[in-house]
Simulated scan of single mutants.
Amino acid sequence: MKTKPFWMAALVGCTMMVGCASQPDNQLKLDGTINGYEGEWIHLAYTVRDTVQVTDSTRIADGAFRFLRPMEVPVAQATLYIGNPMDYRNVKYAGLFIESGELTVAIDTANFSKPEVTGSAAQAESDSLNTVLDPLYAYVQAMRDSVSGNASAERKAYFQKQQEMYADSAKGIQLSFVKSRPHSFVALSYLPFLMGNMTYDELKSIYDNMAPEVKQYGNVGSVRDGLAALERVQPGRPAPLFRAVTWKGDSIGIADLKGKYVLLDFWATWCVPCRKSFPHVKELYKKYHAKGLEVFCVADDDSKPDTWKEVIEKDGIQDFYHVLRGLKWDRSKGVDGMDHTNDISDLYAIHYLPTKYLIDKDGNIVGKFEDEALDAKLKEIFGN
């Protein structure tokens, strides 16, 4: 899609010409219908590029609303919402793709999050993908609903594997969509949610292949940040340095353990797989600690430090080094209240838990490992 003329120039030109009746080429005219919210304010929000956001508001009258405004970008991933965005219990969201031209949106109050949109080519592209994905999501939800709290452990394990299989299928479909559409803003919008499971080379290949005009808009900054983070933790690179306060109140940095092999384990008290992995990590520690292995745990529990300390003792992992990730969050401000300045997880490109890195005696990244590969690598380093 070609970039439209800059909206300010169009507006200025129109004011200078007496009788100018035509609208700028990049004008958005969005007409919507909704029932049950008469007299309420409905808000339109979208990202122009990275952190530059636009918010507009209008009042619902006779079950209808209209947004008439210039589009600063050719296409944007937008949100229509009613209520206080800082209060998740009292806000309704509807996501859609907007672009210049005449768009209509019909919101069903019983299914607020899935509006019917016409006039947007980007939305039509997204809808075509969702036509394939929705049956997978519906099947996964049906499986979840079929497993009661009294179900046997075997039945729960079976359905968990089925859910994971279908979730992997959905990710595969999304990834194929992204790879096959280098000129699509819609494809770019999916990339931040997929890149957590990508290697650096895979993500770089997809990003490099994207059209230059696509890379100018939306949340492309998060993709660039993700690439930079992944590049930092490639095998052979110096492990990103940090310093934090341990659960016992001492200050420690990863550089303090130079001369040792360090298993850097990112986890959380609420992460079941993380805690299930600890018995095995304790075995490795017992086996290799005398030969030079340390375990350094970074927990995603900044909001619940007391629980974090309790779980360390409950799970018997007091011999390891323990710090919090360093994310500060003023929840009254929503996502805008997040402060990642000292976020260790960001330094190490953490998108899922648990994640384990091995760092060598010189402070360089050996790699990211799961259990079997980690066992083999430690055996290679330390012997039996």
Score class of each variant (00 low, 15 high):
Q123A: 04
S126E: 11
F369Q: 05
D145F: 01
S189I: 05
I206S: 03
D319E: 14
T246V: 06
I312H: 06
T109K: 15
P135K: 10
D225S: 12
V52R: 08
D343R: 09
L257V: 00
A61V: 15
Y190A: 10
I317D: 07
S169A: 12
T58N: 08
S120W: 08
V12C: 02
L188W: 05
D168Y: 05
Y139C: 07
P135F: 09
L194P: 06
I82G: 04
G119R: 02
L129M: 11
L30D: 07
G32Q: 09
Q162M: 11
L194Y: 11
F296N: 02
V178G: 07
S189N: 15
M16Y: 07
P235R: 02
A76Q: 01
D371E: 15
G13D: 12
S176K: 15
V262R: 04
G259V: 08
T33D: 12
Y357Q: 03
L133P: 04
N35V: 00
T47F: 02
A142L: 08
Y207Q: 11
S222N: 11
D208T: 08
R331Y: 03
R325H: 12
Y166Q: 09
W267R: 06
A244M: 09
M17V: 14
L293E: 07
Y137Q: 12
L11G: 03
I42Q: 02
K377Y: 03
T109Y: 00
M165N: 06
C271Q: 11
Q160V: 02
G292M: 07
A45L: 10
V140D: 03
K2D: 13
N384P: 10
S303P: 07
K215V: 06
M165W: 01
K92D: 00
A76L: 02
A61P: 00
D301H: 11
K314D: 13
N219S: 13
F97Y: 13
D62R: 12
D225V: 11
L227W: 08
G363Q: 07
S22H: 14
C14A: 15
R325Y: 06
E202S: 14
V178H: 06
G334M: 01
W308H: 03
K114D: 00
I42D: 03
H280P: 06
P354N: 06
H289E: 10
Y288Q: 08
F67Y: 09
S176W: 01
A299M: 05
W270K: 02
G337K: 09
D31F: 10
A170D: 01
D306C: 01
I381A: 03
P354V: 03
L203E: 13
Y348C: 04
V233T: 15
I42T: 00
L230Y: 14
G259M: 10
V48N: 09
W267T: 03
K156F: 05
V132E: 15
I206L: 04
G226S: 11
G221K: 14
D134C: 00
W41Q: 14
Q174V: 01
D56E: 14
L129R: 08
P135D: 11
I42E: 03
A45E: 12
A239Y: 04
V132G: 01
G226C: 10
L327V: 14
K171A: 15
D319H: 13
N35T: 12
G218E: 06
